[in-house]
Every structure is written in structure tokens, then in C-alpha cells.
Design a protein around this nucleic acid. Structure first.
Lengths: 148, 148
DNA sequence: GTGAATCATTCGAGCATTGAACGATATGAG
DNA sequence: CTCATATCGTTCAATGCTCGAATGATTCAC
């Protein structure tokens, strides 16, 4: 019983394949957004801003699951590119509220295009049905994780 | 036309969700194999050895997509745990052939169990059908990448 | 008002990974 | 046979990414 699984049990596992493919996908995406002067985390921050418009850096840190000090660095660079604006919240002047600029939205669009290009490259060997089912499942799976 | 995609285009993307979930899955898996004194890459090396039994460190480096010097460190630690053996290839004494020991196979089994536990935790909100379809799609997708 | 808590920021540290050297071995040309 | 060249494994210093602690400004509770 105990070694019926025996051979290749790890490779049949979801977390293992997710980890491997996730790293691979990130690398391909990173290679494309590099041309825009961005790292994947920059794109993640832009996407988070686009989704829940106007948030304090603290909120963004917990949303993205990274340290607040990392948000500072990312926001610095995005601000230098003119993609985001830092505005002190008048109701609580400790908070820096980040907002997407028009240029930031354009940049995000180009990130999305890069991601879509990487998608088609990555899923070249899948049927259209598989591809859409996969996208849907991953989306719901992602929404379920640490949703609070 | 250009901004029809507009909102949330990145979050609808495969590479983006794969990257996010991949990191999350790796973290959960890492938390569990840590009890075995291993990092995910150790488990990856064990799995690679189990799959294509007996390989030189150079081959393993290209298989796993990491630098040869990293294989040295991983193999050192696994050897210290008695999980792998280093044997000089008699036909080419530059090569160190790595093989799984019986203990290494047991360790790999425990890694697989950890991965399965992480799987069920991760996919708690999915139907059984979704789960198996996802596993299958990821498996085929992984086999298609850099197959050469 | 005064002290505790919260936000953004800076800075040093930790960890994983890489790339450049090096010694040992193998291979091919002359 | 011998020498030049290439390959393997190994060591080591350097890089990049991320975090945690310390700091200053601001707010909140009482």
C-alpha cells in the first residue's frame, strides 16, 4: 500500500507542477516586461492599483503579500516612470495614497499585452478548450486563496 | 479598440495567475518539506533522479534549469542525509553519477506525501472534476515546455 | 496634553543563485 | 606519444531580491 504511489509521485502533484510552471511563466513574463523597464512585481502593483483604485501603501503590501518596505521601492520606481502618483491622504496625513496616472494605465495595458503574448507562447500545445478551462480554474483558485 | 481590454486585463492572464499561484504553492510545499530538512529544490532533484535514474550532475543541472554549482550544493546536502550516492563514472572519471539510495526513495515518498497534503489544502474549494482536469492539463503543459 | 499605536521610509542583513576561476580528466591533431 | 583544447565538478566572490528593525511624522485614546 505504502509504495503503490512509488514512482513519480511528486511529478503527479499539483503543487509541484504549479511551482515549476509558475517559475517558468514568471521568467517568460519577466523577459517581456523587462523591455518596459519593469519587473513582474511592478506589474503586480499596477494591476492591484487598477483593480482596487487608490490605496495606501500599507494596504497594497498586505494585498500583494510583501513587506511594506518593498512597496516603497516599487512605488519609487513607478513614480519615476510617471506611472503612479503619491498623494498624502488629507484625512490621515501618515498615509500615502497611490493612484494610477494615464501613463500608468497605458503601461499596464502594455504589460497585459506582454502577458498575453507569453500566454499564447506558453500554451501553444493546448487546445482552445483546455486553455480557457485552465484560465478559469486558475482564476477561481486564485480568488479562493487567502481571500480575507 | 485599444482599451476595450482596459480593466483587469492582467489578472485575466495565464502567466500572471500561474506566477502568483506558483509562488503560493511553492511556499506551502516549502513549509511542509522544511520538516524533512529540505528545500523544494532538493525535492526537485530527488524527483529528477527518480524519473531518469542515474545522471551526471551536468545533465541534472540542465534538466532542472539551474547552474551546475547549485547541483553541487544540493547533492552535498542530500548526500549528508544519506539520500543520494556519488559514484565516479568509470567510463568518464570526470563525471559524478548521482543515484538514489533506499533512504532517498523513502525521503522522496515523504516529499510526495507533503505535496499531496498541500494539494488538498490548496484545492479545497475546487470540485473533484476541476481538480483532476487541472492536474492533467498542468502535467501536459509541463511536459511540453523546453522538451528538448 | 501625554503616551501608545500606525504609517512611510531608510538601511543593514539574510538567503538563493549565478558566473568566473581552478584542478582533474578526456579527446583529438600532429 | 605529446601537447593543446574542451568538459566535468568544485570553490568562491558577487549579485539581486526580500525582509526586519530602527526612525520620524502623524494620529488616536483617554
Amino acid at each position: 500500500m505504502s509504495d503503490v504511489k512509488g514512482a513519480a509521485a511528486l511529478r503527479a502533484t499539483l503543487v509541484f507542477n504549479l511551482g515549476t510552471l509558475g517559475a517558468l511563466a514568471s521568467d517568460r513574463f519577466a523577459a517581456r516586461v523587462e523591455a518596459l523597464g519593469l519587473k513582474p512585481k511592478h506589474a503586480g502593483l499596477l494591476a492591484a492599483l487598477d483593480a482596487g483604485s487608490a490605496a495606501s501603501q500599507q494596504e497594497l503590501a498586505t494585498r500583494l503579500g510583501v513587506a511594506p518596505s518593498l512597496i516603497v521601492a516599487l512605488a519609487d520606481q513607478l513614480q519615476e516612470l510617471g506611472a503612479v502618483e503619491r498623494v498624502r491622504d488629507p484625512e490621515d496625513r501618515r498615509r500615502q495614497v497611490l493612484t494610477l496616472t494615464a501613463g500608468g494605465r497605458r503601461l499596464l495595458t502594455r504589460c497585459a499585452e506582454a502577458a498575453e503574448a507569453a500566454d499564447t507562447e506558453l500554451t501553444a500545445g493546448l487546445t482552445e478548450a483546455q486553455r480557457t478551462t485552465l484560465a478559469h480554474t486558475l482564476r477561481t483558485l486564485g480568488d479562493q486563496q487567502v481571500p480575507h
